[in-house]
Design a binder for these strands. Structure first.
Length: 480
RNA sequence: GGCCCCAUCGUCUAACGGUUAGGACGCCAGGUUCUCAUCCUGGUAAUCGGGGUUCGAUUCCCCGUGGGGUCACCA
Protein backbone atom coordinates (compact mmCIF):
# COMPACT_ATOMS: atom_id res chain seq x y z
CA UNK A 1 0.00 0.00 0.00
CA UNK A 2 1.39 3.33 -1.05
CA UNK A 3 1.44 5.97 1.63
CA UNK A 4 2.70 9.44 0.88
CA UNK A 5 2.80 12.56 2.96
CA UNK A 6 3.21 16.26 2.89
CA UNK A 7 4.73 17.80 5.98
CA UNK A 8 4.09 21.53 6.19
CA UNK A 9 5.84 23.65 8.73
CA UNK A 10 3.52 26.29 10.22
CA UNK A 11 5.92 29.16 9.78
CA UNK A 12 4.12 31.29 7.23
CA UNK A 13 2.11 31.26 4.05
CA UNK A 14 1.86 28.31 1.71
CA UNK A 15 3.72 28.81 -1.53
CA UNK A 16 2.29 27.79 -4.91
CA UNK A 17 5.18 25.34 -5.23
CA UNK A 18 4.00 23.56 -2.11
CA UNK A 19 0.69 22.92 -3.82
CA UNK A 20 2.52 21.25 -6.70
CA UNK A 21 4.25 18.95 -4.22
CA UNK A 22 0.97 18.22 -2.44
CA UNK A 23 -0.62 17.41 -5.79
CA UNK A 24 2.10 14.96 -6.79
CA UNK A 25 2.03 13.23 -3.43
CA UNK A 26 -1.73 13.09 -3.56
CA UNK A 27 -1.71 11.57 -7.04
CA UNK A 28 0.95 9.01 -6.25
CA UNK A 29 -1.03 7.74 -3.28
CA UNK A 30 -4.42 7.80 -4.99
CA UNK A 31 -3.14 6.01 -8.04
CA UNK A 32 -2.53 2.97 -5.85
CA UNK A 33 -5.64 3.43 -3.72
CA UNK A 34 -3.18 4.35 -1.00
CA UNK A 35 -3.28 7.10 1.58
CA UNK A 36 -2.12 10.66 1.47
CA UNK A 37 -1.11 11.97 4.88
CA UNK A 38 -0.57 15.47 6.17
CA UNK A 39 1.70 15.90 9.13
CA UNK A 40 2.50 19.21 10.74
CA UNK A 41 6.17 19.77 11.49
CA UNK A 42 6.14 22.38 14.21
CA UNK A 43 9.33 21.56 16.01
CA UNK A 44 10.80 25.01 15.74
CA UNK A 45 9.13 27.12 18.36
CA UNK A 46 11.03 30.24 17.39
CA UNK A 47 9.59 30.33 13.91
CA UNK A 48 6.11 29.21 14.80
CA UNK A 49 3.42 31.48 13.40
CA UNK A 50 0.03 31.53 15.05
CA UNK A 51 -2.76 30.50 12.70
CA UNK A 52 -0.39 29.38 9.99
CA UNK A 53 -1.35 25.72 10.19
CA UNK A 54 -5.03 26.55 9.86
CA UNK A 55 -4.37 28.73 6.84
CA UNK A 56 -2.23 26.09 5.17
CA UNK A 57 -4.86 23.41 5.63
CA UNK A 58 -7.53 25.79 4.42
CA UNK A 59 -5.73 26.66 1.23
CA UNK A 60 -5.05 23.01 0.42
CA UNK A 61 -8.78 22.40 0.70
CA UNK A 62 -9.56 25.44 -1.39
CA UNK A 63 -7.47 23.96 -4.15
CA UNK A 64 -9.79 20.98 -4.04
CA UNK A 65 -7.27 18.61 -2.48
CA UNK A 66 -7.79 16.56 0.64
CA UNK A 67 -5.91 14.20 2.90
CA UNK A 68 -6.83 10.78 4.22
CA UNK A 69 -5.02 11.17 7.51
CA UNK A 70 -3.80 14.19 9.37
CA UNK A 71 -5.00 17.11 11.41
CA UNK A 72 -8.77 17.65 11.44
CA UNK A 73 -9.45 14.18 10.04
CA UNK A 74 -7.38 11.97 12.33
CA UNK A 75 -6.22 8.50 11.41
CA UNK A 76 -4.63 5.38 12.84
CA UNK A 77 -1.14 6.79 13.03
CA UNK A 78 -1.81 9.98 14.96
CA UNK A 79 -1.29 12.40 16.39
CA UNK A 80 -0.28 14.14 13.19
CA UNK A 81 1.18 17.23 14.75
CA UNK A 82 4.75 16.79 15.89
CA UNK A 83 4.48 18.99 18.94
CA UNK A 84 1.88 16.50 20.17
CA UNK A 85 4.31 13.64 19.66
CA UNK A 86 7.13 15.18 21.64
CA UNK A 87 7.53 12.30 24.06
CA UNK A 88 8.51 10.00 21.21
CA UNK A 89 11.62 11.46 19.79
CA UNK A 90 13.93 11.63 22.77
CA UNK A 91 14.02 7.91 23.33
CA UNK A 92 14.93 7.30 19.71
CA UNK A 93 17.81 9.72 20.02
CA UNK A 94 18.96 8.06 23.21
CA UNK A 95 18.63 4.69 21.57
CA UNK A 96 21.12 5.87 18.98
CA UNK A 97 23.50 7.01 21.71
CA UNK A 98 23.32 3.54 23.23
CA UNK A 99 24.15 2.01 19.90
CA UNK A 100 27.12 4.31 19.51
CA UNK A 101 25.71 6.17 16.52
CA UNK A 102 25.05 9.40 18.35
CA UNK A 103 26.57 11.32 21.25
CA UNK A 104 25.85 14.04 23.75
CA UNK A 105 27.26 17.45 22.97
CA UNK A 106 27.61 20.26 25.49
CA UNK A 107 29.22 22.88 23.29
CA UNK A 108 27.91 26.38 23.76
CA UNK A 109 26.51 28.49 21.00
CA UNK A 110 29.52 30.76 21.34
CA UNK A 111 32.00 27.95 20.92
CA UNK A 112 30.15 26.76 17.81
CA UNK A 113 30.14 30.24 16.42
CA UNK A 114 33.86 30.69 16.96
CA UNK A 115 34.59 27.29 15.53
CA UNK A 116 32.66 28.10 12.41
CA UNK A 117 34.35 31.46 12.04
CA UNK A 118 37.83 30.03 12.31
CA UNK A 119 37.02 27.26 9.84
CA UNK A 120 35.71 29.74 7.36
CA UNK A 121 38.81 31.83 7.81
CA UNK A 122 40.93 28.82 6.93
CA UNK A 123 38.72 28.21 3.94
CA UNK A 124 37.47 24.85 5.08
CA UNK A 125 33.92 23.62 5.27
CA UNK A 126 32.28 24.65 8.54
CA UNK A 127 31.56 21.49 10.46
CA UNK A 128 31.32 20.43 14.05
CA UNK A 129 34.73 19.27 15.19
CA UNK A 130 33.43 16.41 17.32
CA UNK A 131 34.99 17.81 20.42
CA UNK A 132 32.38 16.27 22.71
CA UNK A 133 32.50 12.91 21.01
CA UNK A 134 36.23 12.68 21.40
CA UNK A 135 36.77 14.25 24.82
CA UNK A 136 33.79 13.27 26.88
CA UNK A 137 33.13 9.61 27.49
CA UNK A 138 29.62 8.31 27.69
CA UNK A 139 29.67 7.92 31.47
CA UNK A 140 30.72 11.51 32.05
CA UNK A 141 28.25 12.72 29.49
CA UNK A 142 25.36 10.95 31.18
CA UNK A 143 26.47 12.33 34.51
CA UNK A 144 26.42 15.87 33.18
CA UNK A 145 23.01 15.28 31.65
CA UNK A 146 21.54 14.07 34.94
CA UNK A 147 23.06 17.08 36.66
CA UNK A 148 20.92 19.20 34.41
CA UNK A 149 23.51 20.60 32.06
CA UNK A 150 22.20 21.81 28.74
CA UNK A 151 22.99 19.40 25.91
CA UNK A 152 22.08 18.27 22.42
CA UNK A 153 22.39 14.85 20.82
CA UNK A 154 24.33 14.67 17.59
CA UNK A 155 24.39 11.97 14.96
CA UNK A 156 27.82 10.44 14.52
CA UNK A 157 28.43 10.33 10.80
CA UNK A 158 30.83 7.60 9.68
CA UNK A 159 33.62 9.69 8.21
CA UNK A 160 35.17 6.93 6.16
CA UNK A 161 32.01 5.65 4.53
CA UNK A 162 30.25 6.63 1.38
CA UNK A 163 26.57 7.14 1.97
CA UNK A 164 24.44 6.29 -1.04
CA UNK A 165 20.79 6.21 -1.79
CA UNK A 166 18.58 5.80 -4.78
CA UNK A 167 16.29 8.54 -5.94
CA UNK A 168 13.46 7.24 -8.11
CA UNK A 169 13.89 10.14 -10.49
CA UNK A 170 17.50 11.23 -10.16
CA UNK A 171 19.03 7.80 -9.83
CA UNK A 172 21.88 6.87 -7.52
CA UNK A 173 23.35 9.64 -5.44
CA UNK A 174 26.20 9.35 -3.02
CA UNK A 175 27.98 11.55 -0.52
CA UNK A 176 31.29 11.03 1.21
CA UNK A 177 30.78 10.65 4.96
CA UNK A 178 33.39 13.29 5.62
CA UNK A 179 31.23 15.83 3.80
CA UNK A 180 28.31 15.35 6.12
CA UNK A 181 28.14 17.22 9.40
CA UNK A 182 27.28 15.59 12.72
CA UNK A 183 23.69 16.69 12.64
CA UNK A 184 21.96 17.72 15.83
CA UNK A 185 19.06 15.33 16.34
CA UNK A 186 17.72 16.51 19.65
CA UNK A 187 17.87 20.18 20.50
CA UNK A 188 18.68 21.58 23.91
CA UNK A 189 15.04 22.50 24.39
CA UNK A 190 14.15 18.83 24.08
CA UNK A 191 12.57 19.20 20.65
CA UNK A 192 13.80 17.01 17.83
CA UNK A 193 15.25 18.63 14.74
CA UNK A 194 13.56 18.05 11.44
CA UNK A 195 15.96 15.26 10.58
CA UNK A 196 15.13 13.10 13.56
CA UNK A 197 11.43 13.84 13.60
CA UNK A 198 10.92 13.27 9.90
CA UNK A 199 12.58 9.87 9.93
CA UNK A 200 10.87 8.68 13.09
CA UNK A 201 7.46 9.84 11.93
CA UNK A 202 7.76 8.65 8.37
CA UNK A 203 8.67 5.24 9.72
CA UNK A 204 5.97 5.16 12.37
CA UNK A 205 3.38 6.35 9.88
CA UNK A 206 4.56 3.76 7.39
CA UNK A 207 5.24 6.26 4.64
CA UNK A 208 6.40 4.43 1.53
CA UNK A 209 7.38 7.32 -0.74
CA UNK A 210 9.00 10.56 0.27
CA UNK A 211 8.45 13.11 -2.44
CA UNK A 212 9.75 16.58 -1.67
CA UNK A 213 11.65 19.51 -3.13
CA UNK A 214 15.17 18.97 -4.41
CA UNK A 215 16.54 21.23 -1.71
CA UNK A 216 16.36 18.17 0.54
CA UNK A 217 18.77 16.07 -1.48
CA UNK A 218 21.80 17.07 0.49
CA UNK A 219 20.31 16.16 3.82
CA UNK A 220 19.01 12.81 2.63
CA UNK A 221 22.24 10.99 3.59
CA UNK A 222 21.54 11.88 7.20
CA UNK A 223 18.10 10.39 6.90
CA UNK A 224 19.38 7.29 5.17
CA UNK A 225 21.84 6.74 7.99
CA UNK A 226 19.09 7.09 10.57
CA UNK A 227 16.98 4.45 8.84
CA UNK A 228 19.98 2.18 8.80
CA UNK A 229 20.89 2.70 12.45
CA UNK A 230 17.34 2.24 13.59
CA UNK A 231 17.16 -0.90 11.52
CA UNK A 232 14.19 0.37 9.53
CA UNK A 233 13.31 -0.13 5.93
CA UNK A 234 14.12 2.92 3.84
CA UNK A 235 11.23 4.47 1.93
CA UNK A 236 11.61 5.49 -1.68
CA UNK A 237 12.89 8.98 -2.29
CA UNK A 238 11.79 11.32 -5.05
CA UNK A 239 13.17 14.83 -5.29
CA UNK A 240 11.27 17.34 -7.36
CA UNK A 241 12.60 20.32 -9.29
CA UNK A 242 11.90 23.67 -7.69
CA UNK A 243 9.94 26.42 -9.37
CA UNK A 244 11.56 29.54 -10.74
CA UNK A 245 10.48 32.74 -12.40
CA UNK A 246 10.64 32.86 -16.21
CA UNK A 247 12.43 36.16 -16.56
CA UNK A 248 14.74 35.98 -13.58
CA UNK A 249 16.91 32.94 -13.06
CA UNK A 250 15.74 32.52 -9.54
CA UNK A 251 12.87 31.66 -7.29
CA UNK A 252 9.38 32.97 -7.74
CA UNK A 253 9.29 36.60 -6.88
CA UNK A 254 6.65 39.02 -5.79
CA UNK A 255 7.94 41.32 -8.47
CA UNK A 256 6.31 39.17 -11.15
CA UNK A 257 3.00 38.57 -9.43
CA UNK A 258 1.52 36.23 -6.91
CA UNK A 259 3.65 33.72 -5.09
CA UNK A 260 1.55 32.35 -2.28
CA UNK A 261 -1.06 29.73 -3.01
CA UNK A 262 -3.76 31.95 -1.53
CA UNK A 263 -2.95 34.93 -3.72
CA UNK A 264 -3.62 33.06 -6.95
CA UNK A 265 -7.07 32.19 -5.72
CA UNK A 266 -7.67 35.77 -4.64
CA UNK A 267 -6.66 36.99 -8.07
CA UNK A 268 -9.34 34.87 -9.61
CA UNK A 269 -7.51 31.85 -10.91
CA UNK A 270 -9.51 28.65 -10.84
CA UNK A 271 -8.15 25.85 -8.66
CA UNK A 272 -8.62 23.32 -11.44
CA UNK A 273 -6.67 25.48 -13.89
CA UNK A 274 -3.93 26.10 -11.37
CA UNK A 275 -3.69 22.40 -10.63
CA UNK A 276 -3.64 21.52 -14.31
CA UNK A 277 -0.83 23.99 -14.86
CA UNK A 278 1.08 22.68 -11.87
CA UNK A 279 0.78 19.07 -13.05
CA UNK A 280 2.91 19.84 -16.06
CA UNK A 281 5.65 21.48 -14.06
CA UNK A 282 7.93 18.52 -13.70
CA UNK A 283 5.77 15.81 -15.14
CA UNK A 284 4.38 14.98 -18.57
CA UNK A 285 1.80 12.45 -19.69
CA UNK A 286 3.93 11.13 -22.53
CA UNK A 287 1.37 12.37 -25.05
CA UNK A 288 0.45 15.73 -26.51
CA UNK A 289 -2.54 16.17 -24.26
CA UNK A 290 -2.31 18.77 -21.59
CA UNK A 291 -5.76 19.41 -20.25
CA UNK A 292 -6.32 17.12 -17.29
CA UNK A 293 -8.64 16.95 -14.35
CA UNK A 294 -7.14 15.80 -11.08
CA UNK A 295 -8.76 12.39 -11.57
CA UNK A 296 -7.18 12.01 -14.97
CA UNK A 297 -3.89 13.12 -13.53
CA UNK A 298 -4.11 10.44 -10.87
CA UNK A 299 -4.69 7.81 -13.56
CA UNK A 300 -1.78 8.96 -15.67
CA UNK A 301 0.72 9.99 -13.04
CA UNK A 302 3.84 7.89 -13.10
CA UNK A 303 7.23 8.49 -11.56
CA UNK A 304 8.83 7.41 -14.83
CA UNK A 305 7.45 10.59 -16.35
CA UNK A 306 8.62 12.91 -13.62
CA UNK A 307 11.70 14.58 -14.83
CA UNK A 308 14.99 15.53 -13.39
CA UNK A 309 15.54 19.17 -14.32
CA UNK A 310 16.90 21.25 -11.50
CA UNK A 311 14.37 24.03 -11.94
CA UNK A 312 11.22 24.56 -13.90
CA UNK A 313 9.98 27.99 -14.87
CA UNK A 314 6.62 29.13 -13.66
CA UNK A 315 5.25 30.66 -16.85
CA UNK A 316 2.52 33.05 -15.84
CA UNK A 317 1.43 33.49 -19.47
CA UNK A 318 0.66 29.84 -19.78
CA UNK A 319 -1.17 29.80 -16.48
CA UNK A 320 -3.38 32.57 -17.83
CA UNK A 321 -4.07 30.51 -20.92
CA UNK A 322 -5.04 27.48 -18.83
CA UNK A 323 -7.39 29.62 -16.81
CA UNK A 324 -9.02 30.90 -19.99
CA UNK A 325 -9.46 27.37 -21.27
CA UNK A 326 -11.29 26.35 -18.10
CA UNK A 327 -13.42 29.48 -18.11
CA UNK A 328 -14.51 28.87 -21.69
CA UNK A 329 -15.40 25.27 -20.92
CA UNK A 330 -17.96 26.22 -18.30
CA UNK A 331 -21.63 26.64 -19.08
CA UNK A 332 -22.78 30.22 -18.55
CA UNK A 333 -24.59 29.17 -15.42
CA UNK A 334 -21.52 27.44 -13.99
CA UNK A 335 -19.32 30.38 -14.77
CA UNK A 336 -21.83 32.71 -13.15
CA UNK A 337 -21.84 30.61 -10.00
CA UNK A 338 -18.08 30.65 -9.86
CA UNK A 339 -17.97 34.40 -10.27
CA UNK A 340 -20.48 34.83 -7.50
CA UNK A 341 -18.46 32.71 -5.14
CA UNK A 342 -15.38 34.64 -6.12
CA UNK A 343 -16.85 38.04 -5.35
CA UNK A 344 -19.83 38.51 -3.07
CA UNK A 345 -20.64 41.85 -4.62
CA UNK A 346 -21.46 40.09 -7.87
CA UNK A 347 -24.18 38.12 -6.10
CA UNK A 348 -26.23 41.26 -5.67
CA UNK A 349 -26.69 41.63 -9.42
CA UNK A 350 -29.92 40.39 -10.97
CA UNK A 351 -29.28 36.80 -12.06
CA UNK A 352 -30.76 37.18 -15.54
CA UNK A 353 -28.79 40.27 -16.35
CA UNK A 354 -25.68 38.77 -14.78
CA UNK A 355 -25.88 35.66 -16.92
CA UNK A 356 -26.41 37.76 -20.01
CA UNK A 357 -23.29 39.74 -19.22
CA UNK A 358 -21.32 36.64 -18.31
CA UNK A 359 -22.12 35.01 -21.61
CA UNK A 360 -20.73 38.09 -23.37
CA UNK A 361 -17.43 38.12 -21.53
CA UNK A 362 -16.88 34.39 -21.21
CA UNK A 363 -14.39 34.17 -24.02
CA UNK A 364 -12.74 37.44 -23.07
CA UNK A 365 -12.01 37.04 -19.39
CA UNK A 366 -8.84 35.29 -18.34
CA UNK A 367 -8.96 35.81 -14.57
CA UNK A 368 -11.91 36.72 -12.40
CA UNK A 369 -10.20 39.84 -11.13
CA UNK A 370 -10.81 41.32 -14.58
CA UNK A 371 -14.57 41.04 -14.26
CA UNK A 372 -15.14 44.59 -13.04
CA UNK A 373 -12.99 46.21 -15.71
CA UNK A 374 -14.63 44.19 -18.42
CA UNK A 375 -18.22 44.80 -17.40
CA UNK A 376 -18.56 47.97 -15.36
CA UNK A 377 -20.43 49.82 -18.10
CA UNK A 378 -23.26 47.32 -17.87
CA UNK A 379 -23.85 48.23 -14.25
CA UNK A 380 -22.46 51.66 -13.52
CA UNK A 381 -22.94 55.15 -14.85
CA UNK A 382 -20.39 56.09 -17.47
CA UNK A 383 -19.14 59.48 -18.45
CA UNK A 384 -18.47 59.95 -22.15
CA UNK A 385 -18.02 63.19 -24.05
CA UNK A 386 -18.80 63.76 -27.71
CA UNK A 387 -15.15 64.33 -28.50
CA UNK A 388 -14.26 60.93 -27.17
CA UNK A 389 -16.44 59.12 -29.70
CA UNK A 390 -15.40 60.98 -32.82
CA UNK A 391 -13.79 58.67 -35.36
CA UNK A 392 -10.58 59.51 -37.13
CA UNK A 393 -12.14 60.31 -40.51
CA UNK A 394 -15.02 62.22 -38.94
CA UNK A 395 -15.49 65.60 -37.35
CA UNK A 396 -17.30 66.40 -34.13
CA UNK A 397 -19.97 67.95 -36.26
CA UNK A 398 -20.46 64.82 -38.36
CA UNK A 399 -20.81 62.87 -35.18
CA UNK A 400 -23.23 65.31 -33.61
CA UNK A 401 -25.44 64.96 -36.67
CA UNK A 402 -25.46 61.20 -36.79
CA UNK A 403 -26.55 60.65 -33.19
CA UNK A 404 -30.17 61.78 -33.72
CA UNK A 405 -30.46 59.43 -36.67
CA UNK A 406 -29.33 56.53 -34.55
CA UNK A 407 -31.72 57.55 -31.82
CA UNK A 408 -34.57 57.78 -34.27
CA UNK A 409 -34.02 54.21 -35.34
CA UNK A 410 -33.67 52.81 -31.85
CA UNK A 411 -36.59 54.70 -30.36
CA UNK A 412 -38.92 52.87 -32.71
CA UNK A 413 -37.93 49.50 -31.31
CA UNK A 414 -40.48 48.22 -28.79
CA UNK A 415 -39.05 47.04 -25.46
CA UNK A 416 -40.04 43.46 -26.14
CA UNK A 417 -38.25 43.47 -29.50
CA UNK A 418 -35.04 44.83 -27.99
CA UNK A 419 -32.95 41.88 -29.10
CA UNK A 420 -29.52 41.69 -30.67
CA UNK A 421 -30.83 40.29 -33.91
CA UNK A 422 -33.42 42.99 -34.39
CA UNK A 423 -31.01 45.72 -33.38
CA UNK A 424 -28.44 44.51 -35.85
CA UNK A 425 -31.00 44.44 -38.64
CA UNK A 426 -32.07 47.99 -37.95
CA UNK A 427 -28.65 49.51 -37.42
CA UNK A 428 -27.27 47.82 -40.50
CA UNK A 429 -30.29 49.18 -42.32
CA UNK A 430 -29.36 52.64 -41.15
CA UNK A 431 -25.79 52.18 -42.20
CA UNK A 432 -26.92 51.12 -45.69
CA UNK A 433 -28.59 54.45 -46.15
CA UNK A 434 -25.57 56.43 -45.09
CA UNK A 435 -23.17 56.98 -47.94
CA UNK A 436 -20.33 58.44 -45.90
CA UNK A 437 -20.36 56.17 -42.82
CA UNK A 438 -18.71 52.76 -43.04
CA UNK A 439 -19.94 50.01 -40.74
CA UNK A 440 -16.74 50.27 -38.81
CA UNK A 441 -17.10 53.99 -38.24
CA UNK A 442 -20.75 53.92 -37.37
CA UNK A 443 -20.59 50.97 -35.04
CA UNK A 444 -17.47 52.17 -33.30
CA UNK A 445 -19.12 55.50 -32.68
CA UNK A 446 -22.10 53.81 -31.09
CA UNK A 447 -19.88 51.46 -29.14
CA UNK A 448 -17.93 54.31 -27.63
CA UNK A 449 -21.09 56.25 -26.94
CA UNK A 450 -22.81 53.49 -25.00
CA UNK A 451 -19.85 51.86 -23.28
CA UNK A 452 -17.00 54.34 -23.31
CA UNK A 453 -14.73 51.48 -24.39
CA UNK A 454 -13.05 50.66 -27.71
CA UNK A 455 -13.01 46.94 -26.98
CA UNK A 456 -16.26 45.33 -25.96
CA UNK A 457 -18.34 42.28 -26.81
CA UNK A 458 -20.20 42.48 -30.14
CA UNK A 459 -22.10 45.76 -30.31
CA UNK A 460 -25.64 44.50 -30.83
CA UNK A 461 -25.39 42.01 -28.00
CA UNK A 462 -23.99 44.71 -25.80
CA UNK A 463 -26.80 47.13 -26.58
CA UNK A 464 -29.31 44.39 -26.09
CA UNK A 465 -28.06 43.65 -22.58
CA UNK A 466 -27.71 47.33 -21.75
CA UNK A 467 -31.42 47.80 -22.40
CA UNK A 468 -33.33 50.37 -24.37
CA UNK A 469 -33.47 53.11 -21.79
CA UNK A 470 -29.80 53.07 -20.90
CA UNK A 471 -28.76 52.94 -24.52
CA UNK A 472 -30.93 55.86 -25.50
CA UNK A 473 -29.89 57.90 -22.47
CA UNK A 474 -26.23 57.43 -23.19
CA UNK A 475 -26.60 58.44 -26.81
CA UNK A 476 -28.79 61.36 -25.89
CA UNK A 477 -26.34 62.69 -23.33
CA UNK A 478 -23.73 63.20 -26.02
CA UNK A 479 -25.69 65.82 -27.84
CA UNK A 480 -27.07 67.79 -24.95
C1' G B 1 34.57 28.06 -2.15
C1' G B 2 33.66 22.29 -0.93
C1' C B 3 30.01 18.72 -2.00
C1' C B 4 25.50 17.05 -4.66
C1' C B 5 22.25 17.49 -8.79
C1' C B 6 20.77 19.25 -13.60
C1' A B 7 21.33 20.73 -19.09
C1' U B 8 16.33 20.03 -26.28
C1' C B 9 12.92 26.27 -29.28
C1' G B 10 12.16 32.51 -24.98
C1' U B 11 9.00 28.96 -21.54
C1' C B 12 6.79 23.83 -20.26
C1' U B 13 8.28 19.53 -22.66
C1' A B 14 8.35 14.76 -26.48
C1' A B 15 11.90 11.85 -29.01
C1' C B 16 14.05 5.72 -23.87
C1' G B 17 21.09 4.88 -30.70
C1' G B 18 18.38 5.64 -36.77
C1' U B 19 12.53 11.32 -36.85
C1' U B 20 12.59 16.66 -42.17
C1' A B 21 14.16 16.87 -33.69
C1' G B 22 7.30 16.57 -32.39
C1' G B 23 3.46 19.23 -29.27
C1' A B 24 1.77 23.37 -26.13
C1' C B 25 2.26 28.65 -24.30
C1' G B 26 4.22 33.16 -26.24
C1' C B 27 5.35 35.84 -30.60
C1' C B 28 4.54 36.93 -36.05
C1' A B 29 1.38 36.58 -40.52
C1' G B 30 -3.29 35.41 -42.76
C1' G B 31 -8.66 34.07 -42.47
C1' U B 32 -13.55 35.07 -39.93
C1' U B 33 -15.28 40.14 -38.32
C1' C B 34 -18.65 46.24 -36.09
C1' U B 35 -13.94 46.63 -31.96
C1' C B 36 -11.78 43.17 -28.59
C1' A B 37 -11.67 38.18 -27.68
C1' U B 38 -12.65 33.28 -29.31
C1' C B 39 -11.94 30.07 -33.40
C1' C B 40 -9.22 28.27 -37.96
C1' U B 41 -4.63 28.20 -41.10
C1' G B 42 0.43 29.03 -41.61
C1' G B 43 5.17 30.70 -39.72
C1' U B 44 9.30 31.82 -36.16
C1' A B 45 12.47 29.25 -32.87
C1' A B 46 16.23 24.30 -29.70
C1' U B 47 19.76 19.53 -28.95
C1' C B 48 25.65 24.52 -24.22
C1' G B 49 31.11 23.51 -26.03
C1' G B 50 35.05 19.89 -26.84
C1' G B 51 36.62 15.03 -26.97
C1' G B 52 35.50 9.92 -27.26
C1' U B 53 32.26 4.88 -27.96
C1' U B 54 29.37 3.42 -32.40
C1' C B 55 27.93 2.04 -39.16
C1' G B 56 25.05 5.95 -36.74
C1' A B 57 24.49 10.11 -31.39
C1' U B 58 19.64 14.82 -28.46
C1' U B 59 20.20 9.89 -26.46
C1' C B 60 26.02 6.30 -23.73
C1' C B 61 31.17 7.88 -21.39
C1' C B 62 34.87 11.81 -20.08
C1' C B 63 36.36 16.99 -19.60
C1' G B 64 34.91 21.87 -19.69
C1' U B 65 30.98 25.67 -19.34
C1' G B 66 26.46 27.25 -17.42
C1' G B 67 22.43 26.80 -13.90
C1' G B 68 20.41 25.17 -9.27
C1' G B 69 20.67 23.15 -4.36
C1' U B 70 23.22 22.66 0.20
C1' C B 71 26.87 23.57 3.85
C1' A B 72 22.17 25.92 11.52
C1' C B 73 20.25 23.52 18.20
C1' C B 74 15.32 26.24 10.42
C1' A B 75 12.32 23.36 8.12
Amino acid sequence: MTRTRMAPSPTGEYHIGHIRTVLYNYALAKKDQGAFVIRIEDTDRTRFVEGSMERILEVIKDYGLSWDEGPQVGGDYGPYIQSERLGLYKKYAEDLVEKGHAYYCFCSEDRLKELRASQQEKGIKPMYDRYCAENIDIREAKQRVTEGESYVIRLKIPRDETISFHDEVLGDISFAGEEVDDQVLLKSDGFPTYHLAVVVDDHLMEITHIMRGSDWVSSTPKHVLLYKYFGWETPKFIHLPNLKEVGAGKKLSKRFGSVSAREFLDEGYLPEALLNFLMLLGWNPGTDEEIFSVDEFIQKFDLANVHSADLVAFDREKLLWFNGVYIRNFTVSELTDRLISYDEAIATIDRNKLEAVVSLIQERIKVFSEFRDLTYYFFDEINVTLDAVVQKSKTADDTRKIIPQILAVLEEVPEEAWQAEKLEELLRGLQDQLTDWSPKELFMTIRLAVTGEKATPPLFDTISVLGKQTTLDRLQSLIQ
